[in-house]
Amino acid sequence: MAKQKRATWWKMLYFQRATIESISNEDAGSGLKAAFRYFDGEEITPDDLTPQAFTAFCVMKPYIDESMRNYEDAVENGRNGAAKRWE
């Protein structure tokens, strides 16, 4: 299987625990599944989830977005570095 050309991870931080612990296991799981769908490029709307599951998703979403930006920045920096090297 070929390596994916995209971000392959996102951060989960300890301070998020209080939010996740405050909701049911079912909603936490639904929020996590939504995060994986979002990470794969699917659109997630509040109507797709219960309010608590959407909260769990929203706790993770900024870090998914950051991971995607960091990956794109690294790719762009690599392109720029290669272009400078071979000028």
Results as ranks from 00 to 15, higher is better:
Q4Y: 14
K5F: 10
K5G: 01
R6P: 05
R6Y: 04
A7K: 10
A7L: 12
T8V: 13
W10R: 07
L13F: 00
L13D: 04
L13A: 00
L13C: 07
F15G: 11
Q16C: 10
R17C: 11
R17Q: 15
T19D: 06
T19C: 07
E21K: 04
S22M: 00
I23V: 14
S24G: 06
N25W: 10
N25F: 08
E26I: 06
E26P: 01
D27H: 11
A28Q: 04
A28R: 08
G29V: 08
L32M: 02
L32S: 12
L32W: 08
K33Y: 15
K33A: 14
K33D: 08
F36D: 14
F36P: 01
F36C: 13
R37S: 07
Y38S: 02
F39H: 07
D40G: 15
D40F: 14
G41Q: 09
E42I: 08
E42S: 07
E43T: 14
I44Y: 02
T45N: 04
T45P: 01
D47T: 15
D48T: 07
L49M: 05
L49G: 02
P51S: 12
Q52R: 07
Q52T: 06
A53D: 00
F54V: 02
F54W: 11
F54S: 02
F57H: 13
F57R: 05
F57L: 13
C58I: 03
V59A: 15
V59C: 11
V59H: 07
V59N: 09
M60V: 08
K61P: 09
K61C: 10
K61W: 08
D65Q: 09
N70D: 13
Y71T: 03
E72Y: 11
D73F: 02
D73I: 04
A74M: 13
V75A: 06
E76G: 00
E76R: 03
N77C: 10
G78C: 01
G78Q: 05
R79V: 01
N80H: 06
N80V: 01
A82V: 11
A83R: 06
K84W: 02
K84E: 01
K84Q: 03
K84D: 09
R85Y: 08
